[in-house]
Simulated scan of single mutants.
Amino acid sequence: MKEQFSTAFGNLIDKLQGWFNTTIEYIPNFILAILVMITSYFAAKYISKFVGKLVSKKIEQASIKNAIARVSAVVVVALGLFIALGVMNLGKALTSLLAGAGVVGLAIGLALQGTLANTFAGLILSFRKKIQIGDWVETTGFAGEVMDINLKDFTLKESDNNIVVIPNKTILENPLKNYSLTTRMRVFIECGVGYESDLEMVEELTKNVIANTFEQVKYANDVEFYYTEFGGSSINYLCRFWIDAESMLEKMRAKTKAIIEIKKAYDKEGINIPFPIRTLQFDNKLSVKSSDLHQMASKN
Rank of each mutant, 00 (worst) to 15 (best):
93 A>M: 09
90 L>R: 02
134 G>S: 03
141 G>F: 00
127 F>S: 07
114 G>K: 13
130 K>D: 10
137 V>Q: 02
91 G>I: 09
144 G>K: 05
140 T>A: 00
88 M>C: 12
83 I>T: 14
96 S>M: 02
144 G>A: 06
129 K>L: 07
90 L>H: 02
116 L>M: 14
116 L>Q: 00
142 F>S: 09
139 T>E: 07
86 G>K: 10
83 I>E: 01
102 G>W: 00
136 W>T: 12
140 T>S: 05
105 G>H: 11
133 I>D: 01
83 I>H: 05
100 G>R: 02
116 L>K: 00
136 W>N: 08
110 L>R: 01
84 A>W: 08
144 G>L: 00
133 I>P: 00
104 V>W: 11
87 V>R: 10
104 V>Y: 12
95 T>K: 02
141 G>V: 08
126 S>T: 01
88 M>I: 15
143 A>S: 11
118 N>Y: 04
130 K>T: 08
114 G>P: 09
83 I>P: 03
112 L>Q: 12
98 L>F: 12
121 A>I: 14
121 A>T: 09
145 E>R: 05
124 I>W: 13
119 T>D: 03
142 F>R: 02
107 A>W: 13
148 D>R: 07
84 A>L: 07
121 A>N: 04
89 N>E: 14
123 L>T: 07
112 L>S: 15
96 S>R: 09
136 W>G: 09
147 M>A: 01
101 A>C: 13
94 L>T: 08
138 E>Y: 04
100 G>V: 07
118 N>P: 04
98 L>N: 02
86 G>T: 10
127 F>L: 02
103 V>A: 03
98 L>A: 11
115 T>C: 13
134 G>I: 12
149 I>C: 05
84 A>C: 12
139 T>A: 04
145 E>S: 09
96 S>L: 13
112 L>W: 13
98 L>T: 12
132 Q>W: 08
146 V>E: 05
97 L>D: 04
84 A>F: 05
119 T>C: 12
90 L>W: 11
141 G>H: 01
143 A>Y: 00
121 A>R: 00
114 G>Q: 07
120 F>Y: 12
98 L>M: 08
121 A>P: 08
142 F>Q: 04
127 F>H: 02
145 E>K: 10
115 T>A: 12
122 G>L: 14
86 G>L: 13
98 L>G: 09
126 S>Q: 00
119 T>M: 10
87 V>W: 08
109 G>K: 06
82 F>E: 06
87 V>N: 03
129 K>A: 13
118 N>A: 05
84 A>M: 12
123 L>A: 01
96 S>V: 09
102 G>E: 02
126 S>H: 05
125 L>E: 11
111 A>I: 15
108 I>S: 06
85 L>E: 06
112 L>F: 15
82 F>V: 15
110 L>P: 14
98 L>H: 05
117 A>N: 13
147 M>P: 09
92 K>S: 07
88 M>L: 11
101 A>Y: 12
108 I>T: 11
85 L>Q: 06
123 L>K: 04
114 G>L: 13
111 A>T: 15
104 V>A: 14
142 F>H: 06
111 A>V: 15
132 Q>V: 15
123 L>W: 11
82 F>D: 04
140 T>R: 09
116 L>Y: 13
90 L>Y: 01
120 F>G: 03
87 V>H: 08
126 S>D: 03
128 R>E: 02
100 G>P: 07
87 V>G: 08
